[in-house]
Amino acid sequence: MFELRLVQGSLLKRVIDAIKDLVNDANFDCSSTGFSLQAMDSSHVALVALLLRSEGFEHFRCDRTFSMGMSIANMAKMLKCASNDDIITIKADDGTDTVTFMFESPSQDKISDIEMKLMDIDSDHLGIPDAEYEAIVRMPSTEFGSICTSLSTIGDTVTIAVSKQGVTFSTKGDIGSGNITCRQNSSTEKPEEATIIEMKEPVVLTFALKYITTFTKATSLSSQVTISLSSDMPVVVEYKIAEMGHIRYYLAPKIEE
């Protein structure tokens, strides 16, 4: 028996919106710790890891650890039946091949029951060790999103360079080139508007903008984004989900041949 209840149902809609352009099908892992997922895109270049801790739910029951294979596109379709202020309950029983979503309006005058078929999905779980990063940039998520959108109109890749001067995002394309530098700015009274750079070593890495801009679909989940970089290592782009957990994206860098 698995049952979880999330009063802030729009959060689940936003989580699925943040994954659906990257991953087609995924196994959701259910355990007493919470509801989590690790999935790679079809080209095995990028990975998304989601954690929603059990404490963040109004009700969370999971009698035994198991995985539910779901089509993310179908899940997004089902969640379209929920209004943004609906309370969402997800239920699954042992041995069944369906999952039930229940959407309740806040005034309890409308209840929708939606059943979705589960899938068998073969997925490779990658072991990602905890690592120390050479540079960690924290900045407003909307700022990061608009930088990626702007640069992707010029080029296909973004080079992220962290130095004492700040973090520079640059691109080059057929029509020209561009670079945007954000300096450390921790003096702001609003912490969500701060840009903070922790740097042990200067880092310069190049990534495919196609993937990075897909990651920024998670912007609505968090006011700040954390970008962790080390030379010749995948970047980690993390959006914290308040009180619940996080969504982390990993992307392998472009390598000079």
């Binding site: 990975l47 490779d124 779980h125 472009k254 000079e256 041949e257």
Partner: peptide, 14 residues
């Protein structure tokens, strides 16, 4: 032209 790396080259499967 730089080549796209794959994640499996950095992280091991389990």
């Amino acid at each position: 032209v730089p080549k796209q790396g794959s994640l499996a080259a950095f992280y091991t499967g389990n």
